[in-house]
């Protein structure tokens, strides 16, 4: 890997520099430009690598022709533009979900599973499933905690669906947007070997949430130690997949910037998990006196956070 790095780092410098110059003028096309840019790398690398990466250049060559042809002809407001992000089959989705919860060391999720073909199916439906899983299992756990209490009246707490949807979808869209912006900015300053398109980052973030679905279902059981165990395990798995994926993109930067970006990624992930647990799942020791009046019930979730 280190021997490959030097020869095409020089090539990449001119290439990305040109693209970034173009990006300043046309902001709206910048997503597509970023999408095309990394596709050109394996092709160029094929000339230098002695044959260890025989498969990747062939595959990406085919995809490059297809994708660049599509992207040139199809603008983003048409139906066909979005169809290319749903161009997946059942076994792809299975592989990607399994890949997102099994962090092999030095295995890049984007390179191994996405292969220049990010999809929106997985992220969207994983987020939707997670929203309903959080709302429903939070409600069930609340019910189990209060089971047998005389003055407890069960409510479906439907408002939690809206709150969970806001939290999850804003995490899955805004954090990738910010990260993409930061990576673009750092690419401008310090030349990095790998750069990701916006859709690839969204895809990684969406699939990294998949591990939280079984974790959230486990949170139904009112054992605090079990919840914390599953949080830690889920955090380790999804956090390590995210870190390993973004490690090549920031590797050539200053150490301080690397630490800042990666710790921000992990911290936001942890914040989502712990925040969801604190807000949607009440503790096993509830305060009994304040349950009768509606105002007290309104205060209760905020005090538990």
């Amino acid at each position: 890997m280190a021997s490959n790095k030097d020869p095409f780092q020089f090539q990449e410098f001119e290439e990305a520099g040109n693209l970034l110059e173009a990006n300043r003028d046309a902001v709206t096309i910048s997503i597509e430009d970023e999408g095309i840019k990394p596709e050109k790398q394996p092709k160029r690398a094929a000339g230098y690598s002695p044959g260890g990466e025989d498969e990747d250049p062939l595959v990406s060559d085919d995809k490059e022709e297809l994708l660049s042809g599509q992207k040139k002809s199809v603008p983003f407001w048409t139906f066909e533009y979005y169809q290319q992000y749903f161009d997946i089959e059942t076994h792809h989705v299975k592989e990607r979900i399994i890949g997102s919860v099994r962090p092999w060391p030095m295995k890049n999720f984007i390179h191994v599973y996405l292969r220049r073909n990010p999809d929106l199916y997985g992220p969207f439906w994983i987020c939707t499933t997670l929203v309903f899983a959080i709302a429903i299992s939070g409600n069930i756990s609340n019910f189990l905690v209060h089971l047998g209490k005389p003055n407890y009246k069960y409510t479906p707490e439907f408002r939690k669906v809206t709150i969970a949807a806001t939290a999850i979808f804003s995490y899955a869209w805004l954090v990738p947007l910010a990260l993409w912006g930061v990576l673009l900015w750092r690419n401008n300053k310090v030349m990095n070997l790998v750069s990701y398109s916006f859709m690839e980052i969204v895809c990684v973030y969406g699939y990294s949430l998949a591990i939280y679905i079984p974790a959230v279902v486990l949170w139904i059981l009112p054992y605090e130690w079990l919840r914390w165990c599953s949080i830690v395990i889920a955090l380790c798995l999804s956090g390590s997949v995210l870190v390993m994926t973004f490690w090549p993109a920031v590797r050539d930067d200053h150490p301080k910037v690397i630490i800042a970006i990666l710790s921000a990624v992990v911290l936001l992930n942890a914040l989502l998990a712990v925040g969801c647990k604190a807000y949607f799942f009440s503790k096993p020791e509830p305060i009994l006196q304040v349950e009768n009046t509606p105002a007290a019930v309104m205060i209760k979730p905020t005090s538990s956070t």
Binding site: K153, T155, P156, E157, F158, R159, P294, V297, M298
Partner: peptide
């Protein structure tokens, strides 16, 4: 349960 103001069931519009 939607009659109680707090965190009730789904409203008609929902």
């Amino acid at each position: 349960a939607a009659d109680s103001d707090d965190q009730g069931g789904p409203q008609f519009a929902e």
